[in-house]
Amino acid sequence: MNMRSEPMNLPLPIVQSTLRRSPWRRIYQGIFNGDALGFAGAMLLAVLLVVAIIGPLLVTHDPLLTTPKTLLPPSIEHWLGTDHFGRDVFSRTVTSLRIDFIVAGLGVTGAIFIGSFIGLVCGYLGGWLDELVMRLVDIVQSFPLLLIAMVLILVMGPGVESIVIVTVLINIPTYARVIRGEALSRKTLEYIDAARCSGASEASILFRHLMPNTLSPIIVHGSLNLAAAVGNVAALSFLGVGIRPPTPDLGVMVAEGTNYLIQGAWWMSIGPGLVLAATIFSLNLVGDCLESRLDPRRAEG
């Protein structure tokens, strides 16, 4: 016979307490789940957004003012040098950032509203309408969207409004497809049945019960899409159909800079390009972080 008894141990903490940490630490842990990269991306994005918003206070020169001091390299007076019209590259870059954020933001927001609505209705109602719309989406997605965007902008006439509208149009299919999938997979779930049993109208089920639950894919795709939209707006401008000079735009600035590279004026394109890359990078980081945070299937591990 053999007996063994263990001394009583202290209770094992189940959840690591998050209460006694500083608020920053809590945001870092709570929202970013300790994802340092996503946090860094969000900080970078925040800085860029602040620069874009308070841009008019930051500019050192009038971004549109042409001066005889053309193609000057970076100096104390002109932090990023001057361009071929003697305009201050730094001031133009800051102003561009503001314009590009507004254009891409409006475009993606518009696409989210219209695309989600189409997707929700198609996914929820199904039937021939769904079939028709989804085949259309298939066709649109087989088009080379950058070229289509060029054609559409030329058809509508160049201008900021056209770019916004085109951004909306080419992004609608993404949301229509994603949200349709969400609606389709959720409409058979119990809580929708429960709402129906308690006498909720179709419209109320659609917008009060289904829509809020499609929010996380919208947020994820929204930030990744915004990154792509900022790049596309700049690319269109680079190809000469986007935002037209003299309005400052990062793509236009890089395009103009290209022509003066041969003369060694590298500063004309390097600043705007870096800012553009940083903007897209921060949005991608945030989107990637949100994706792994909000998609439980990808989150663990």
Binding site: M1, M3, R4, M8, N9, L12, P13
Partner: peptide, 29 residues
């Protein structure tokens, strides 16, 4: 949860206070 105990105590018809004070002893014969 989170304490050392006999993990059957909550379902056990013979449960007593000692069950939740440390892991149960092993009796071998």
């Amino acid at each position: 949860q989170g304490i050392e105990r006999c993990r059957f105590s909550h379902r056990c018809p013979h449960a007593r206070a000692a069950c939740e004070m440390g892991r149960p002893p092993v009796i071998e014969r």
